[in-house]
Amino acid sequence: MFEDGLIFLNELFLERLNYVIYVVLLLIGLHAMIAKNNFIKKLIGMSIFQTAIILFYVSIGVKEGATIPIYLPEHDPHGEQAYATGGPEALTVEQVTSYANPLPHVLMLTAIVVGVATLGLALALCQKIYQGYGTVEEDELMAKLEKEDASSRKPKTHPAGKSSSKPEVSSRAKRSGTNSVGKTTAPQAKKSSGARKTKAPVKKATRKSDQKKGDSK
């Protein structure tokens, strides 16, 4: 029993270390994407997540005793050998085993590009959210959005029925016990001033993250 366990662990961690590492990386990324509060951290998690998948695909392409999938001089279609025989020839089965499988590499080039595109778009979204709400923290944003949705939910005067809408509004205002005019203006004023206040210190942080992204490119 103990022996079996050791063999299993040995197999898992020594012979398939890549598969273990990719799963761990993937889980780190997934956890960051779901649980982190900061949007930039979520995006970092997203990058780790995608990189883990790339690692997995590249691991598929590993072949023992094989070289990179570029023809050696003796198989080069434009090499001396090819000229001597009058044109490139298909490789034999033994020769095929000496080259790595090119397909996973091609697939991952695509996945990398898609990852870069998604990351760029998501960063642009972060900036737009920051411009609009002054925060990239999920809980703060949710609070602000709730406030905004609640204020937009108040019945406005609409074209079909001015006469009837007025008493409705006033009855609602009475129920909640506040003056409807004061309620609509106050939170907005508060929000704008609050946004201005919070903007200054956070700005540095986003500038830093911009720098990082610029460097990584």
Binding site: F39, F49, L121, L125, C126, Q131, Y133
Partner: peptide, 17 residues
């Protein structure tokens, strides 16, 4: 709108997963 951008961010994260 900016509200749409905030809603899209969730979509990006879940869509990418």
């Amino acid at each position: 709108s900016k509200r749409a951008a905030a809603a899209t961010f969730n979509y990006v994260i879940l869509g990418t997963i």
